[in-house]
Write a protein that binds this DNA or RNA. Structure first.
Lengths: 183, 183
DNA sequence: AGAACCATGTAATGCGTTACATGATTTC
DNA sequence: GAAATCATGTAACGCATTACATGGTTCT
């Protein structure tokens, strides 16, 4: 049940409405954990019943009212209990890998185009992470303890994207040599 | 609906019973796409109704009978259609990343132990992949076109594990410097 | 005038995990 | 004698996605 914990982490950083949380899950946190607004509203409801979060109705003019959720003491307790818990190994799951395995059934040009597209996506995401890093953590040696988590998560994303990029290059290289050998 | 395609890829390589497929999903294919036997049986049933696979009952002595599934022409068509389809970008989803972000709430020693455990897991998996690579693809420059997919998938796994390992090392390094600064 | 943003939800369906169920054979 | 392997499933539940629904405001 990790979405609940992701929400707790986000609300511990700053209280927010369901809508605002959904926006965050599109950006910062969402780079490593996606969630739709529908799902977030549902889980927030459950968590309020459970007492981990509390909401306050905020009226706005010219905009719909919103329910701003804050983490409660009980939620904070649950969160620190959870961070002290060992994290189980995460299985990697890749549709692309499954498809790669059946590459001999594919048209080489189509496949090359697909890998190229993927390569561009990795490059763009990497550039985006790098921009965030420069903006928020200009000096990696001087990151405050509170900000260290965010920095390290970003670094993890960068390493993952770089690995994906290297993989694409290796695939493209192999496709070329095979083609060359066939001709 | 990628499990169906993973099953088609596996059956295209060799016909198998649900049980045997489940074993494969524990090993080779399963390194990149996990599935339980319950799920596999369910999906196989659906796929047989849909005509992508066909089963034949094989009686055995001293062992339970088994239903051996084979890919059909229609299944093969669907498979080659699918491999020609662009693969959508896969969001990375990591409970560990969420937890990392809240690292300031954790006890440093506990956290260090958790990261160390994770580091060992990556190291072991990497060694396992490397052993597979040496066994099945001793000469990367001479991989046959049929085997290329399997080789490249393995390489992807190795790159991902290496990135995970590097991440752990970077986290441990940062935790040390922060501790050092505090004292 | 149309698109995008703000804001909150319900309903249906599908995907995945966990628990339960059975029973013979082989290996330690 | 106990544990693991072979073999196939059902049932319950939870997590996630997609579609549907509403309605005002701001930007282009």
């Amino acid at each position: 049940m990790a979405l609940e914990h992701a929400i707790l982490v986000s609300l511990a950083e700053r209280s927010a409405s369901g809508y605002e949380l959904a926006r965050r899950f599109d950006a910062s946190i969402g780079n490593f954990w996606k969630a739709s607004h529908q799902q977030i509203y549902k889980v927030l409801g459950r968590m309020e019943t459970g007492g981990q979060v509390a909401s306050e109705l905020v009226e706005q003019d010219g905009r719909p009212d919103k329910k701003v959720y804050a983490i409660t003491t009980s939620g904070r307790d649950e969160l620190s209990r959870w961070v002290g818990t060992p994290t189980p190994a995460e299985a990697l799951r890749s549709e692309f890998a499954v498809k790669l395995r059946a590459l001999h059934l594919a048209d080489p040009a189509t496949l090359r185009a697909d890998v190229g597209r993927r390569r561009v996506q990795h490059t763009e995401k990497l550039a985006y992470y790098e921009a965030s890093r420069q903006k928020f953590y200009p000096d990696p040696a001087a990151v405050s303890p509170e900000a260290l988590g965010g920095y390290l998560v970003l670094r993890g994303g960068m390493l993952a994207e770089q690995a994906g990029l290297d993989w694409c290059d290796e695939i493209l290289g192999q496709l070329d040599t095979v083609d060359g050998a066939v001709r």
